[in-house]
């Protein structure tokens, strides 16, 4: 996972994700298959070229693995229709993945989208000016 998300390797993405991969939490308009997941992930990584994921915690039971991650990155490229803001973003992510024969077949992501949008200044933070670059 670190090779894909920090090393930005599309080859490792294909190796780790099964052709039958399903993203159970794909955003509206993004296909839930392996290709859709790849487009979304690399679209995101390209918008934050200095992005860094740190795995804080991992929980494994049966064929499921949960990772809790902290993401940091600077928004220097367009993402989901939001032009580059230059803002530094820190986010908490939780992934639940199902692994079969060494490959990921199912993925469930929970990220704090609201604070993501607030840190990009797209949505105002309560008590703060949305345009305030700090």
């Amino acid at each position: 996972m670190e090779e894909v998300q920090n090393g930005k390797s599309e080859a490792v993405y294909d190796e780790l994700n099964d052709p039958a991969f399903v993203n159970l939490s794909s955003p509206p308009g993004i296909p839930s298959d392996r290709g859709g997941g790849k487009t979304f992930l690399f679209g995101f990584l390209n918008a934050f070229p200095d992005s860094r994921f740190t795995i804080d915690d991992m929980i494994a039971e049966g064929d499921q693995v949960v990772t809790k991650k902290t993401f940091t990155g600077t928004h220097t490229g367009e993402f989901a229709g939001i032009p580059a803001t230059g803002n530094k973003v820190t986010l908490q992510f939780v992934d639940i993945m199902r692994v079969r024969n060494g490959r990921i077949v199912e993925h469930w992501l929970s990220m704090d989208q609201l604070s993501f949008m607030q840190q990009l200044g797209v949505i105002p933070t309560p008590g703060q000016d949305a345009r305030d670059p700090t």
Partner: peptide, 11 residues
């Protein structure tokens, strides 16, 4: 506890 929930979806 660490909670991640769809605050955005709620709004």
């Amino acid at each position: 506890e660490w909670v991640n929930w769809d605050t955005f979806g709620m709004l």
